[in-house]
């Protein structure tokens, strides 16, 4: 085999593998953003040129026009607290305490990052809906039908993701984003 041909074929193989790996990395999860906290994934320096190339690409693909962290920090989950993929075949309960920010919201998206149509048009729960006596111990159910006071609709069997937004996060939340207590995601009953 000629030398030039060997180099040519391997150049193409390398380019295809590298491009494919990047595409797969971006599509599979938020893990590319680098910081893990239980099932939640987040990054640093979002919205700036100082963010890692993986964070910048992930945010562009999965959270375009996201705010920089002085305004908001985003935590994304595609698994429950035991590491199992979130799926509409199961019901879930999300439990959490006080989140050190001006306000927060929990929103459900499909695996491409879009809201899922549902008859009730219920896509999220925000801290404004949590009464003062529940601020340090709140529960949000994710299921086909409302099962508790705070509920997000998951109308079908597809995989899904959760995004926790914390607006005007405290310095401590920003500094300890990888270790502060964040909501737990517990799987309940699953269908066939």
């Amino acid at each position: 085999m000629r030398t030039g041909f060997r180099y040519g074929i391997m150049l193409v193989v390398g380019l295809v593998l590298g491009t494919g790996a990047a595409a797969l990395q971006l599509k599979q999860s938020f893990a590319a953003m680098g910081i893990e906290n239980g099932p939640w994934r987040t990054g640093e320096k979002v919205g700036t040129a100082d963010a890692s190339v993986a964070t910048r690409a992930t945010v562009a693909l999965r959270g375009l026009l996201a705010l920089p962290e002085r305004e908001a920090i985003y935590f994304n989950a595609s698994t429950d607290s035991q590491g199992r993929k979130l799926t509409g075949r199961c019901a879930y309960r999300v439990t959490g305490g006080a989140i050190d920010a001006r306000w927060w919201s929990l929103t459900l998206y499909d695996s491409a990052g879009y809201l899922i149509p549902n008859p009730a048009s219920v896509y999220s729960v925000g801290s404004a809906a949590i009464p003062p006596e529940e601020k340090t111990n709140w529960t949000v159910d994710i299921a086909r039908k409302r099962t508790g006071t705070h509920w997000i609709a998951m109308p079908d069997d597809q995989p899904f993701e959760l995004t926790l937004r914390a607006y005007h996060p405290s310095r401590e939340l920003l500094a300890k984003r990888g270790s502060v207590p964040l909501p737990r995601i517990e799987r309940g009953e699953c269908g066939a």
């Binding site: 060997r6 391997m10 990047a22 971006l26 910048r56 945010v59």
Partner: peptide
């Protein structure tokens, strides 16, 4: 041994393509 050079090239190309794809995405 004739493949050592092409394999190294493939590895360099893969890293460059990976980085270039991520960098161009935004």
């Amino acid at each position: 041994s004739r493949w050592i050079g092409p394999v190294v090239l493939a590895m360099i190309a893969a890293v460059a393509a990976w980085y270039g794809t991520l960098a161009a995405a935004p």
